[in-house]
Design a protein around this nucleic acid. Structure first.
Length: 286
DNA sequence: CCTAGAACCTGCGAGC
DNA sequence: TGCTCGCAGGTTCTAG
């Protein structure tokens, strides 16, 4: 389940293996993978052809590859199961191969978008002045962005009439945080996922942001070690997954701080994991 | 305008 | 054995 650290690992892999190569042709094997490209699969493929790829960028869970001299960029979102792989031409097609992009050089490799659950996809969009694809203008900066506005985020929390985990997953407030890192950061901060954001103090917001950044940087440190591999990213995960998570997926296991059995609660069609002792539920549920 | 919840997808494992 | 059902979950759309 790619969140910010996993996507950043992919971006670095693309910078190493795909940037500065010229597209020979693109092949769309499943129309749903380009559904955000409203002009359709043929148009998508046609527009890539012959253009050179620039330096890949990322905001939150989105990444994009500029197409040099076009004012456009290939926008990618991995959804829940998407992978971008650099494979030899001779490698057999993956079962869920959706898009293949070949290049004009003789490196012998191609870029493949593989996605089992088809929530992800690629699309082509105009970029605005700062190089951002226009369709993600509403996505907030992520907490690892040097220009992320901590005070602005705090004020936004105070203004909202919502609860903290909802806010963390709202990509227009803060991007890059998904279900897993939200639970991890909340556990570290000893904050219950259903706590209303309106009462957050400045120190509480600051501490939460620190934990979010710590969790992400730790994941990045683990996932960022396999750049030498031909694969941009072998499995779409950073390796942090196999490492010790403190909250996510630990239902019934002792809290690593106080030993109390961790709990899982159904929440927004998914799950929230928390320690019932360290992360006290708010008195009044909104 | 704001917030909550459903819908979109497929594979896997548990339970019957 | 084979079926059903719950679960995984980011984003977008719709309803209230």
């Amino acid at each position: 389940m790619p969140e910010l650290p996993e996507v950043e690992v992919v971006r670095r892999g693309l910078a190493r293996w795909v940037a500065h190569r010229t597209v020979a042709d693109a092949e769309v094997l499943h129309p749903r993978a380009v559904r955000r490209h409203t002009a359709g699969a043929d148009d998508f493929a046609h527009r890539l052809k012959g253009h050179r790829i620039g330096t890949p960028s990322r905001r939150g869970k989105y990444l994009w590859l500029p197409l040099e001299d076009t004012g456009q960029a290939i926008l990618a979102h991995l959804g829940m199961s998407g992978q971008l792989l650099v494979q030899q031409h001779s490698a057999p097609d993956e079962k869920h191969l959706r898009i293949r992009i070949r290049f004009t050089d003789v490196q012998g490799t191609e870029l493949r978008f593989v996605d089992q659950r088809t929530f992800g996809g690629l699309s082509l969009h105009d970029t605005t002045g700062d190089g951002l694809p226009d369709v993600i203008a509403h996505i907030a900066r992520d907490p690892l962005d040097p220009l992320f506005d901590d005070e602005g985020f705090h004020q936004a929390l105070r203004r909202k009439r919502t609860t903290i985990k909802r806010a963390l997953l709202d990509q227009s407030l803060i991007s890059g945080v998904g279900n897993i890192y939200a639970d991890e950061a909340l556990w570290r901060s000893r904050i219950h996922y259903d706590r209303p954001t309106a009462g957050f103090t400045r120190p509480r917001t600051a501490e939460l942001l620190t934990h979010i950044r710590d969790v992400m940087n730790e994941a990045l440190a683990v996932g960022g070690t396999s750049f030498d591999s031909l694969y941009v990213n072998v499995n779409g995960e950073s390796g942090y997954f196999d490492r010790s998570l403190d909250a996510y997926g630990r239902e019934g296991l002792p809290c690593k701080r106080c030993g109390t059995p961790m709990r899982r609660r159904p929440w927004m069609n998914r799950s929230s994991y928390f320690c019932p002792k360290c992360q006290r539920a708010p008195r009044v549920t909104p």
